[in-house]
Design a protein around this nucleic acid. Structure first.
Length: 460
RNA sequence: GGCGCGGUAGCAAAGUGGUAAUGCAGUGGACUGCAACUCCGCGAUCGUCGGUUCGAUUCCGACCCGCGCCUCCA
């Protein structure tokens, strides 16, 4: 039993073998911080966080880096509009990103490198690329010469000429070849910039990842992840920079890419105005609901996203937490032989693993009904172990049902008070009065559940 | 034009060469003073047409439909 991952490089599922089983390295492209992030940014974070958790269950040391791009033209434009320094803007949104990601139960990566803190490393890499004949200076720009690399395009599977044939963007005059991309570009006096051998300027987008990976993880890493749209040009160019700087040494052995999210059946895009920002969704839904939706589809698939799905996911989690409610706590244990764990090892089949969550929960519930305490706690431990690998069921079940669910909800105290009133009514055989309390609370989104032990309540 | 992906029940979504998991919704019943929870039961022949095969939703081909990327969008 071992981990298998679909590798974009080979377009096949492959057994995962790290270079060093004692130290596994993974890098995932993080956000450009000029705004709040949307749900599409959350997908890779959740997917690769899940992979990180799985890797942690297999290897003693997993180095997971996710960068913050804090220098970029969009950042510069937004900062200029707001009349503030780019560092102020980027720090604000980086912080917001961390908060959003934490709300989605994402663990903190091992390393969070910032582009602007690696300017010297980037300049150093450019100098090496120039020295090795892979880059040239033109009008203050430093460009990477893609033709200097034999297998440029191997990740995206395209030939150079094919790429250029349908290019939609005009070619800058200083490029020797249309496919060449910028490593360093000059900054105007009123633009942020850093001194370099080629004058004051700023790095091209792709360079930061190559430089930061080299510094923090090494010349060759095990896993590199990101959204599908990054395959070309971003990851292709990272490969070009790193491989050429390292004399052809492999850059990343496994390339993983998550699919896109569709909103109400269509692509999420600015022009359609249907962006879903994570923080806005979090005002209406617990982060775990968003996470559940993301993990309910396989990471490589295109994924549907809608209010109906969020509501459905919330009810689904209610079901799971409902099974947990009233069961004694148990320490999470990963059952390595379980179908759920194997599903995760099989290219992160989270939909399958989630279905196992339900099977375990039902079996646990049945064991409880049969009075088999040992089996019950064993199954609960396994359930929590599997859920933990996905970052799900991380809340206390009692709290899950009693926390306010948006809007101005009735307070827990008031609910308890009404339940007492109803109890008295029932004692007095005033069932009409008791039913009225039930109905009133239901109108406020509170469901009452009577049992031998008394009345419990939950928000729905 | 080039490269690539997908079409499975109302909504989502796995999966398999031997007649298709799971969740939500719906629905019938048990339980309940009523209800909720829970439990038992009910629904798809897998885009279309061919081919290979004893047998295909699963392999191959064509077609239809939807979609992504082609220089800075997760």
């Amino acid at each position: 039993m071992s981990l298998a991952l679909y590798n974009t490089l080979s377009r096949k599922k492959e057994p995962f073998t790290p270079l060093d089983a004692e130290r596994v390295t993974m890098y995932v492209c993080g956000p450009t911080v000029y705004n709040r992030v949307h749900i599409g940014n959350a997908r890779p974070a959740v997917v690769f966080d899940t992979l990180y958790r799985v890797l942690l269950s297999l290897y003693p040391n997993v180095q997971y880096a996710r960068n913050i791009t804090d220098i970029d033209d969009k950042i510069m434009r937004t900062a200029a509009e707001l009349g503030e320094d780019i560092s102020v803007l980027s720090q604000r949104y980086a912080q917001a990103y961390f908060e959003d990601m934490a709300a989605l139960n994402n663990l903190e990566p091992t390393i969070t490198p910032y582009a602007t803190q690696h300017i010297p490393e980037m300049i150093d890499m450019i100098e090496r690329l120039i020295a090795k004949g892979h880059s040239y200076v033109a009008e203050g720009n430093v460009l990477f010469a893609v033709q200097s690399m034999d297998d440029y395009g191997k990740l995206s599977g395209r030939a150079l000429d094919d790429m250029l044939a349908g290019a939609r963007v005009e070619v800058a005059s200083y490029k020797k070849y249309a496919g060449d991309f910028v490593l360093w570009k000059p900054s105007a006096d009123n633009e942020p910039g850093w001194d370099s051998p080629w004058g004051r300027g700023r790095p091209g987008w792709h360079l930061e990842c190559s430089a930061m990976i080299e510094k923090h993880l090494g010349e060759t890493i095990d896993i590199h992840g990101g959204g599908q749209d990054l395959i070309f040009p971003h990851h292709e160019n990272e490969i070009a920079q790193s491989c050429c700087a390292h004399d052809g040494k492999p850059f990343a052995n496994y390339w993983l890419h998550n699919g896109f999210i569709n909103i109400e059946g269509e692509k999420m895009s600015k022009s359609l105005g249907n962006f879903r920002m994570v923080n806005e969704l979090l005002e209406e839904y617990p982060g775990e609901v968003l996470r559940y939706v993301i993990l309910s589809a396989h990471y490589r698939s295109e994924q549907q996203f809608s209010k109906e799905l969020l509501d459905s996911a919330w009810r689904s989690l209610d079901g799971l937490y409902g099974f947990l409610r009233g069961h004694e706590p148990a320490t999470a244990i990963i059952n390595q032989d379980s179908a759920g764990y194997k599903a995760l090892l099989d290219d992160l089949n989270t939909p399958m693993a989630i279905s196992e969550l339900y099977r375990l929960a039902k079996e646990m519930h049945a064991a409880n009904g049969a009075g088999n305490v040992d089996l019950e706690s064993k199954l609960k431990a396994e359930l929590m172990g599997l859920a933990g690998l996905m970052g799900l069921l991380q809340q206390d079940s009692e709290q899950w049902f009693t926390l306010a669910r948006g809007g101005d909800a009735i307070s827990a105290e008031d609910i308890e008070e009404l339940i007492e009133k109803r109890k008295q009514a029932k004692t007095d055989k005033d069932y009409a009065g008791a039913d009225q309390v039930r109905k009133d609370l239901l109108d406020l989104g509170v469901v009452l559940e009577d049992s031998r032990e008394g009345t419990t309540w939950r928000r729905s």
